[in-house]
């Protein structure tokens, strides 16, 4: 299973790299879709159907909206890319990459093994959730009962995002 996840993750990285460098914006959007749908397969392999359903639906809606936007505006990038032979930008990016790699290696060595997390809260959640909440789906029990504050925060974030969109995308004022 870990080999399959490694292959899919590699495909996702290739898709993301292609999305940056594609000349045609429509193919860049489709390449972005590779990342999302690859994540769906990863969730299914790791046995998380709740997350997989949410991810596949949200990815589809986002892709439809992005394709509609690209078809309506232009299919080519308007601005020119920065000069790749500038010495300052090259050295700066190499420096930042080195520093990031150093911290990445430090943090990876202190992580747990893959699939063996040692969270203290996971045990009581799995054992007592069904009796305490009465719901057959354990994820819903945790999301709406034990972690109710988190869910309320998520819903509020969505409302705030809609308010922001409505404020920005208004040319004429409402009377």
């Amino acid at each position: 299973m870990e080999i399959a996840i490694a292959i899919i993750t590699g495909l996702m990285i290739i898709g993301a790299l292609y999305a940056i460098h594609a000349k045609d914006l429509l193919s860049a959007v489709i390449a972005c879709g590779i990342v999302g749908y690859g994540l769906v397969i990863c969730f299914l392999l790791l046995k998380a159907p709740d997350l997989a359903i949410v991810q596949i639906v949200v990815e589809t809606i986002t892709l439809i909206i992005m394709v509609a936007v690209v078809l309506d505006s232009s299919r080519e990038e308007k601005f020119s890319k920065p000069d790749p032979q500038g010495y300052v930008s090259m050295t700066l990016s190499a420096l930042i990459l080195g520093v990031m790699l150093y911290f990445f290696i430090i943090s990876v060595s202190s992580l747990d093994e893959f699939g063996k997390s040692t969270l203290r809260m996971a045990g009581p959640y799995i054992e007592g959730a069904t009796e305490k909440t009465g719901s057959a789906n354990l994820v819903t029990g945790v999301v709406f009962d034990f972690r109710g504050y988190d869910t309320l925060g998520e819903a509020t974030v969505l409302v705030t995002a809609v308010l922001g969109v409505l404020t920005i995308l208004r040319i004429k004022g409402k009377k």
């Binding site: 719901s135 789906n137 819903t140």
Partner: peptide, 8 residues
């Protein structure tokens, strides 16, 4: 069926 099957 959110409290019985995956989804919600």
């Amino acid at each position: 069926h959110g409290h019985l099957t995956p989804g919600g």
